[in-house]
Design a protein around this nucleic acid. Structure first.
Length: 476
DNA sequence: AAAAAAT
């Protein structure tokens, strides 16, 4: 199914084509007609499935047929970077439509506040906001949602996790009762269902295959104590033809700077991003990383969800994420669109429970390699097979194929061949010196329908077709 | 036990 099949407004279709969207993804195919029909909607879908376009395109279609004298759409998201990214995407889709949008989020310079205030006073068709800053503006009295038609809650499970429940209800209370509400969530626990009941009316429901990571992600697990992680990573990177674009996730923002420093000392171009960074730095660093200005971005889970980076070749889980779900989200940053990618995960001695939870979510085991000893880094942590047995009911999923559950454990001298049922691609794994890093065929060439405004930074020496995010925060 | 988000 292509976007021509949805009977979209011609001007919108021009923007969609200019963004190089042709074939609708499954969620787009399902969601677009329902949204166009005016139904409330609960959609269980991850980022990377084309979820954002699944709601932006039908909403922009409705908006392009309506008058532009009021704010018609409010989109709530968990992180600032996501708000900005969606705003950029609106800008692309709506280029030939006279719809305006603005991202509203905190943390920036005080000029940002004024800019946001002016935009909210003038009004924009679409507001994309993180809840806290929006409430701050709403309390000032100049935000007018009287004629709001559409409310989108994106990454709803994440927002609830982050304690935004009250803030969201507070905002929703100030919106017209007669509106169309769309809720997107990667998971659908009871908590979300209850929450949805309070905000949506007789919603349709779309459910896509549960959080399976893209099959094109080559997942590699390495056993390593904390002190072994950096030299192990250096070794793995040396084996590649050169790391082109890698996000390294750490679970503590306090680790970000130290890891950056270590990588720089090893000669790698690396920068860091976390909620501890100044907002200006967050934006510059992410923009420059997307523009391939430097190869390694060290990040907390602020970037685990939703952020699109073209041609990301590697994701490293320097630490295991606390939530198994976040593992799926993190590795989903790579192998987007048609690309392939590699996800390297370090497992320390404390991480066994978390790994079990991740594998339960993946519904398969992943080979755990131990190569620290052959690298002269000392013995690797032992992965205790008993944990695969002792767990009682939580191990029900395992052993479907009669495989012995304890098998992923291995000595440092037997790094290969373990429970490899789940990892067919592992033979071509990253630490093969003879295999060049994937070719990174560039997608979405000329994807943006017009030149950058603001102050786009072109990558030095890189072709200009590399997508860069918009340089300006607002375009009211 | 962490991160994120309003100042």
């Amino acid at each position: 199914m292509t976007f021509n099949d949805f009977n979209l407004h011609d001007d919108l279709l021009s923007g969609v084509e200019a963004m190089n969207y042709k074939q609708a993804t499954p969620i787009q195919e399902q969601a677009i007609p329902k949204i166009l029909a005016g139904k409330d909607l609960i959609a269980c879908a991850q980022t990377g499935t084309g979820k954002t376009a699944a709601y932006l395109i039908p909403l922009l279609d409705r908006i392009s047929h309506a008058s532009h004298d009021h704010t018609s759409t409010l989109i709530l998201v968990p992180t600032r970077e996501l708000a900005k990214q969606i705003d950029d995407q609106v800008e692309g889709f709506a280029y030939f439509v006279s719809a305006t949008s603005i991202a509203i989020y905190g943390g920036g310079k005080s000029e940002n506040w004024d800019q946001q205030r002016r935009a909210l006073t003038t009004g924009a068709d679409i507001i994309i906001a993180t809840p806290g800053r929006l409430i701050a503006h709403m309390q000032m009295g100049y935000v007018n949602f009287d004629k709001l038609d559409y409310l989108v809650l994106d990454e709803a499970d994440k927002m609830l996790d982050m304690g935004f429940s009250d803030d969201i209800l507070n905002i929703v209370r100030q919106l017209p009762a007669k509106r169309q509400t769309l809720l997107f969530s990667a998971t659908m626990p009871n908590k979300i269902r209850e929450f949805a009941k309070r905000i949506l009316q007789e919603p349709d429901e779309i459910r896509l295959a549960v959080s399976k990571p893209a099959e094109r992600v080559d997942q590699q697990f390495y056993l390593a104590f904390d002190r072994q992680k950096l030299p192990l990573l250096a070794h793995l990177m040396k084996q590649t033809a050169g790391v082109q674009s890698m996000v390294l996730f750490t679970s503590r923002k306090s680790n970000v700077n130290a890891i950056v420093r270590d990588l720089v000392r090893l000669g790698y171009g690396a920068r860091g991003i976390s909620s501890d960074s100044a907002q200006e730095d967050r934006e510059v660093v992410l923009r420059d990383f997307k523009n391939k200005q430097f190869p390694i971005l060290v990040a907390t889970d602020v970037l685990s969800r939703g952020i699109d980076i073209d041609n990301l070749t590697h994701v490293v889980n320097f630490d295991i994420p606390r939530d198994a779900e976040d593992y799926i989200h993190r590795i989903g940053r790579t192998a987007r669109a048609e690309a392939t990618g590699t996800a390297i995960t370090f497992i320390s001695d404390q991480d066994q429970d978390r790994i079990l939870r991740i594998e339960r979510l993946l519904e398969h085991e992943v080979e755990k390699r131990a190569i620290t000893e052959e690298l002269g880094l000392g013995v690797a942590p032992v992965f205790n097979p008993k944990l695969y047995r002792g767990g009682g009911s939580r191990d029900k999923q395992r052993n479907k194929k009669g495989r012995r559950p304890g098998q992923p454990v291995q000595s440092a001298h037997a790094p290969k061949s373990l429970t490899s049922e789940a990892a067919p691609a592992q033979g071509d794994a990253l630490p093969r010196g003879d295999k060049p890093v994937r070719s990174n065929k560039r997608r979405n060439k000329n994807r943006r329908p017009r030149p950058e405004k603001g102050d786009p930074v072109q990558p030095t020496g890189a072709p200009s077709a590399v997508q860069s995010p918009a340089g300006s925060e607002t375009h009211p």
